[in-house]
Simulated scan of single mutants.
Amino acid sequence: MSIDPSGPVTAPSAATGSGVGPLLRGWREQRRVSQLELALRANSSARHISFIETGRSRPSEEMVLRLAGHLDVPVRERNALLLAAGYAPHYPETPLDDPSMDALREGMERLIQGYEPYPALVVDATYDVLVANRGIAMLLDGVPERLLVPPLNAIRLTLHPEGLAPRIRNLRAWRDHLLAQMNRQIALRRSEPLRALYEEVAAFPVPDRDAAVDDDGPLGPASRFALPLLIEHEGRVLSFLSSISTFNTPMDVTVSELAIETFLPADPATAKYLHAMRS
Protein backbone atom coordinates (compact mmCIF):
# COMPACT_ATOMS: atom_id res chain seq x y z
CA MET A 1 0.00 0.00 0.00
CA SER A 2 1.48 3.32 -1.00
CA ILE A 3 1.59 6.18 1.46
CA ASP A 4 0.53 9.71 0.61
CA PRO A 5 2.20 12.11 3.06
CA SER A 6 -0.77 14.44 2.80
CA GLY A 7 -3.16 11.94 4.32
CA PRO A 8 -3.96 8.28 4.94
CA VAL A 9 -5.17 5.79 2.40
CA THR A 10 -8.70 5.10 3.50
CA ALA A 11 -10.32 1.70 3.60
CA PRO A 12 -12.72 0.90 0.80
CA SER A 13 -16.18 1.88 1.95
CA ALA A 14 -18.95 -0.63 2.19
CA ALA A 15 -21.47 -0.66 -0.59
CA THR A 16 -24.37 1.69 -0.21
CA GLY A 17 -27.31 0.28 1.69
CA SER A 18 -28.08 -0.87 5.18
CA GLY A 19 -27.83 -4.21 6.91
CA VAL A 20 -25.11 -6.77 7.23
CA GLY A 21 -24.93 -7.62 3.52
CA PRO A 22 -23.29 -4.40 2.27
CA LEU A 23 -20.96 -4.41 5.27
CA LEU A 24 -19.79 -7.94 4.50
CA ARG A 25 -19.37 -7.04 0.85
CA GLY A 26 -17.24 -4.06 1.87
CA TRP A 27 -14.95 -6.27 3.95
CA ARG A 28 -14.76 -8.90 1.19
CA GLU A 29 -13.83 -6.30 -1.41
CA GLN A 30 -11.30 -4.73 0.92
CA ARG A 31 -9.67 -8.14 1.36
CA ARG A 32 -9.83 -8.67 -2.42
CA VAL A 33 -11.60 -11.99 -2.06
CA SER A 34 -14.15 -13.17 -4.62
CA GLN A 35 -17.56 -14.48 -3.64
CA LEU A 36 -16.52 -17.93 -4.82
CA GLU A 37 -13.30 -17.91 -2.82
CA LEU A 38 -15.11 -16.76 0.32
CA ALA A 39 -17.77 -19.43 -0.23
CA LEU A 40 -15.13 -22.14 -0.48
CA ARG A 41 -13.43 -20.93 2.68
CA ALA A 42 -16.72 -20.80 4.58
CA ASN A 43 -18.07 -24.12 3.24
CA SER A 44 -20.93 -22.32 1.54
CA SER A 45 -21.84 -21.39 -2.06
CA ALA A 46 -21.19 -18.29 -4.13
CA ARG A 47 -24.95 -18.04 -4.65
CA HIS A 48 -25.58 -17.94 -0.89
CA ILE A 49 -22.84 -15.34 -0.37
CA SER A 50 -24.40 -13.23 -3.13
CA PHE A 51 -27.83 -13.50 -1.53
CA ILE A 52 -26.41 -12.42 1.84
CA GLU A 53 -24.61 -9.41 0.34
CA THR A 54 -27.69 -8.24 -1.56
CA GLY A 55 -30.01 -8.72 1.40
CA ARG A 56 -32.01 -11.54 -0.19
CA SER A 57 -30.91 -13.91 2.56
CA ARG A 58 -30.39 -13.25 6.25
CA PRO A 59 -27.29 -15.04 7.51
CA SER A 60 -27.36 -16.94 10.77
CA GLU A 61 -25.31 -15.67 13.68
CA GLU A 62 -22.88 -18.53 13.14
CA MET A 63 -22.52 -17.64 9.44
CA VAL A 64 -21.80 -13.98 10.22
CA LEU A 65 -19.03 -15.00 12.61
CA ARG A 66 -17.69 -17.58 10.15
CA LEU A 67 -17.51 -15.10 7.28
CA ALA A 68 -16.01 -12.43 9.54
CA GLY A 69 -13.35 -14.89 10.65
CA HIS A 70 -12.41 -15.84 7.09
CA LEU A 71 -12.24 -12.14 6.16
CA ASP A 72 -10.04 -11.35 9.18
CA VAL A 73 -12.49 -8.73 10.41
CA PRO A 74 -11.33 -7.14 13.70
CA VAL A 75 -13.21 -8.23 16.81
CA ARG A 76 -14.85 -4.83 17.35
CA GLU A 77 -16.15 -4.84 13.77
CA ARG A 78 -17.46 -8.39 14.14
CA ASN A 79 -19.79 -7.10 16.83
CA ALA A 80 -20.91 -4.37 14.42
CA LEU A 81 -21.68 -7.02 11.78
CA LEU A 82 -23.74 -9.01 14.26
CA LEU A 83 -25.72 -5.92 15.27
CA ALA A 84 -26.36 -5.10 11.61
CA ALA A 85 -27.68 -8.65 11.16
CA GLY A 86 -30.03 -8.29 14.13
CA TYR A 87 -28.02 -10.27 16.66
CA ALA A 88 -26.46 -9.35 20.00
CA PRO A 89 -22.72 -8.64 20.12
CA HIS A 90 -20.69 -11.80 20.62
CA TYR A 91 -17.53 -10.29 22.09
CA PRO A 92 -17.54 -8.34 25.37
CA GLU A 93 -15.58 -5.11 25.79
CA THR A 94 -14.22 -5.23 29.33
CA PRO A 95 -12.48 -2.15 30.72
CA LEU A 96 -8.85 -2.86 31.52
CA ASP A 97 -9.40 -1.69 35.11
CA ASP A 98 -12.20 -4.21 35.64
CA PRO A 99 -11.35 -6.73 38.41
CA SER A 100 -11.71 -9.58 35.91
CA MET A 101 -8.74 -8.12 34.04
CA ASP A 102 -6.46 -8.00 37.07
CA ALA A 103 -4.42 -11.06 36.10
CA LEU A 104 -3.96 -9.86 32.51
CA ARG A 105 -3.01 -6.34 33.58
CA GLU A 106 -0.57 -7.58 36.23
CA GLY A 107 0.92 -10.02 33.75
CA MET A 108 1.56 -7.25 31.22
CA GLU A 109 3.10 -5.06 33.90
CA ARG A 110 5.43 -7.87 35.01
CA LEU A 111 6.35 -8.53 31.40
CA ILE A 112 7.45 -5.00 30.60
CA GLN A 113 9.12 -4.54 33.99
CA GLY A 114 11.06 -7.73 33.38
CA TYR A 115 12.25 -6.25 30.08
CA GLU A 116 14.07 -3.43 31.91
CA PRO A 117 16.44 -1.72 31.41
CA TYR A 118 15.20 -1.89 27.82
CA PRO A 119 12.12 0.25 27.01
CA ALA A 120 8.70 -1.40 26.73
CA LEU A 121 5.11 -0.22 26.85
CA VAL A 122 1.50 -1.33 26.27
CA VAL A 123 -0.80 0.72 24.03
CA ASP A 124 -4.43 0.52 22.98
CA ALA A 125 -5.99 0.80 19.51
CA THR A 126 -5.23 4.53 19.26
CA TYR A 127 -1.71 4.27 20.73
CA ASP A 128 -2.65 5.67 24.12
CA VAL A 129 -0.11 4.36 26.63
CA LEU A 130 -1.69 2.08 29.22
CA VAL A 131 1.48 1.10 31.05
CA ALA A 132 5.18 1.74 30.47
CA ASN A 133 8.41 0.75 32.18
CA ARG A 134 11.34 2.80 33.39
CA GLY A 135 13.15 2.41 30.09
CA ILE A 136 10.39 4.43 28.43
CA ALA A 137 10.46 6.97 31.26
CA MET A 138 14.18 7.46 30.64
CA LEU A 139 13.59 8.23 26.95
CA LEU A 140 10.98 10.81 27.93
CA ASP A 141 13.47 12.82 30.01
CA GLY A 142 13.19 16.48 29.01
CA VAL A 143 9.78 16.23 27.31
CA PRO A 144 7.57 19.16 28.44
CA GLU A 145 5.16 18.27 31.22
CA ARG A 146 2.15 19.43 29.19
CA LEU A 147 2.83 16.61 26.71
CA LEU A 148 2.98 14.06 29.53
CA VAL A 149 -0.52 14.70 30.86
CA PRO A 150 -2.54 11.45 30.66
CA PRO A 151 -3.62 9.92 28.46
CA LEU A 152 -0.15 9.79 26.94
CA ASN A 153 -0.15 8.97 23.25
CA ALA A 154 2.91 7.13 21.97
CA ILE A 155 2.66 8.40 18.38
CA ARG A 156 2.06 12.02 19.39
CA LEU A 157 4.93 11.95 21.91
CA THR A 158 7.25 10.47 19.31
CA LEU A 159 6.52 12.84 16.41
CA HIS A 160 5.60 16.05 18.24
CA PRO A 161 8.16 18.83 17.56
CA GLU A 162 8.44 19.37 21.32
CA GLY A 163 8.38 15.67 22.12
CA LEU A 164 10.94 13.08 21.07
CA ALA A 165 11.14 14.21 17.43
CA PRO A 166 14.07 16.66 17.87
CA ARG A 167 16.16 13.85 19.37
CA ILE A 168 15.37 11.20 16.74
CA ARG A 169 18.32 11.15 14.33
CA ASN A 170 16.41 9.30 11.60
CA LEU A 171 13.11 11.14 12.08
CA ARG A 172 12.00 11.10 8.44
CA ALA A 173 12.50 7.35 8.12
CA TRP A 174 10.93 6.61 11.52
CA ARG A 175 8.00 8.93 10.77
CA ASP A 176 7.37 7.15 7.46
CA HIS A 177 7.42 3.83 9.28
CA LEU A 178 4.90 4.99 11.89
CA LEU A 179 2.56 6.58 9.35
CA ALA A 180 2.61 3.44 7.21
CA GLN A 181 1.83 1.34 10.27
CA MET A 182 -1.10 3.60 11.19
CA ASN A 183 -2.31 3.58 7.61
CA ARG A 184 -2.54 -0.20 7.60
CA GLN A 185 -4.50 -0.13 10.84
CA ILE A 186 -6.89 2.53 9.53
CA ALA A 187 -7.64 0.32 6.54
CA LEU A 188 -8.14 -2.68 8.80
CA ARG A 189 -10.23 -1.08 11.52
CA ARG A 190 -11.85 1.91 9.80
CA SER A 191 -11.17 3.85 13.00
CA GLU A 192 -12.10 7.53 12.97
CA PRO A 193 -10.08 8.32 16.15
CA LEU A 194 -7.04 6.68 14.57
CA ARG A 195 -7.61 8.60 11.35
CA ALA A 196 -7.80 11.87 13.32
CA LEU A 197 -4.53 11.02 15.08
CA TYR A 198 -2.90 10.25 11.73
CA GLU A 199 -3.94 13.59 10.29
CA GLU A 200 -2.67 15.40 13.40
CA VAL A 201 0.79 13.84 13.48
CA ALA A 202 1.22 13.83 9.69
CA ALA A 203 0.96 17.63 9.85
CA PHE A 204 3.88 17.95 12.29
CA PRO A 205 7.02 19.49 10.72
CA VAL A 206 9.65 17.12 9.44
CA PRO A 207 13.27 17.85 8.43
CA ASP A 208 14.31 17.81 4.78
CA ARG A 209 16.97 15.26 5.56
CA ASP A 210 17.69 12.96 8.48
CA ALA A 211 20.69 13.63 10.68
CA ALA A 212 21.65 10.02 10.08
CA VAL A 213 21.43 8.82 6.49
CA ASP A 214 21.95 5.16 5.66
CA ASP A 215 24.44 5.60 2.83
CA ASP A 216 27.67 4.14 4.21
CA GLY A 217 26.01 2.43 7.12
CA PRO A 218 25.67 5.24 9.72
CA LEU A 219 22.42 3.68 10.93
CA GLY A 220 24.48 0.79 12.18
CA PRO A 221 24.68 -2.92 11.30
CA ALA A 222 21.11 -3.57 12.51
CA SER A 223 19.78 -1.51 9.60
CA ARG A 224 20.58 -4.44 7.33
CA PHE A 225 17.77 -6.38 9.02
CA ALA A 226 15.21 -3.80 10.18
CA LEU A 227 14.82 -0.05 10.53
CA PRO A 228 16.36 1.06 13.84
CA LEU A 229 15.15 3.95 15.96
CA LEU A 230 18.11 6.28 16.54
CA ILE A 231 17.49 8.59 19.46
CA GLU A 232 19.75 10.87 21.47
CA HIS A 233 19.89 10.67 25.25
CA GLU A 234 22.24 12.88 27.24
CA GLY A 235 24.57 13.35 24.30
CA ARG A 236 24.63 9.69 23.23
CA VAL A 237 22.88 8.16 20.24
CA LEU A 238 21.00 5.02 21.22
CA SER A 239 19.89 2.49 18.62
CA PHE A 240 16.80 0.27 19.04
CA LEU A 241 14.87 -2.31 17.08
CA SER A 242 11.14 -2.31 17.79
CA SER A 243 8.93 -5.38 18.14
CA ILE A 244 5.13 -5.40 18.57
CA SER A 245 3.21 -8.30 20.15
CA THR A 246 -0.54 -8.89 20.27
CA PHE A 247 -2.73 -11.61 21.78
CA ASN A 248 -3.61 -14.74 19.84
CA THR A 249 -7.34 -15.35 19.20
CA PRO A 250 -8.67 -12.65 21.52
CA MET A 251 -12.27 -13.10 22.71
CA ASP A 252 -12.67 -9.59 24.13
CA VAL A 253 -12.63 -6.29 22.22
CA THR A 254 -10.30 -4.62 24.72
CA VAL A 255 -7.79 -7.47 24.63
CA SER A 256 -7.90 -7.62 20.82
CA GLU A 257 -6.75 -4.00 20.61
CA LEU A 258 -3.84 -4.22 23.07
CA ALA A 259 -0.29 -4.18 21.74
CA ILE A 260 2.99 -4.62 23.63
CA GLU A 261 5.91 -2.79 22.04
CA THR A 262 9.44 -3.57 23.13
CA PHE A 263 12.69 -1.91 22.08
CA LEU A 264 15.72 -4.15 21.77
CA PRO A 265 19.19 -2.58 21.74
CA ALA A 266 20.48 -2.71 18.18
CA ASP A 267 24.14 -2.49 19.12
CA PRO A 268 26.37 -3.39 22.08
CA ALA A 269 26.96 0.26 22.97
CA THR A 270 23.25 0.87 23.52
CA ALA A 271 22.89 -2.24 25.66
CA LYS A 272 25.92 -1.28 27.76
CA TYR A 273 24.63 2.28 28.23
CA LEU A 274 21.16 1.11 29.35
CA HIS A 275 22.59 -1.34 31.86
CA ALA A 276 24.92 1.37 33.21
CA MET A 277 21.96 3.72 33.63
CA ARG A 278 20.11 1.07 35.60
CA SER A 279 22.95 0.45 38.07
Rank of each mutant, 00 (worst) to 15 (best):
L230R: 15
L241K: 00
P193Y: 09
S223A: 15
P221G: 06
I231Y: 00
D214G: 05
P218M: 05
F204P: 00
R189T: 11
A222V: 09
Q185A: 11
P218K: 07
L197H: 10
T254L: 08
F225A: 11
L230T: 09
V255A: 13
S191T: 12
V206K: 05
A226E: 14
R224L: 13
A187N: 11
D252A: 10
G235N: 12
A196Q: 15
V237E: 11
I244H: 09
D208Y: 03
P228R: 11
A211K: 06
R209K: 12
Y198G: 09
R236Q: 14
D210T: 08
S242P: 03
E199W: 00
G217Q: 04
D252W: 08
R195F: 05
L219E: 08
F247Y: 14
V237F: 00
R195M: 07
Y198P: 09
D216F: 09
P218G: 05
D208I: 00
L194P: 08
I244E: 14
M251H: 12
M251W: 09
E234Q: 13
E199S: 10
S223T: 05
F240S: 04
A226G: 01
F247N: 03
P218E: 06
I231E: 02
R236F: 06
P193A: 08
G217F: 05
M251Y: 10
R184L: 11
N183G: 14
I244R: 11
V237A: 01
F240R: 04
I231H: 05
T246Q: 15
D252E: 07
F225P: 00
L238D: 01
P207C: 00
P250T: 13
F225M: 06
G235V: 08
Q185F: 00
V253G: 10
E199V: 10
P228I: 09
A211Y: 04
G217R: 08
A211I: 05
A196N: 13
G220C: 01
S243G: 10
P221K: 07
V213G: 02
M251L: 15
S223N: 08
P193V: 05
P228T: 11
R224M: 13
A211Q: 13
E234S: 08
P221W: 07
P207V: 02
P218Q: 06
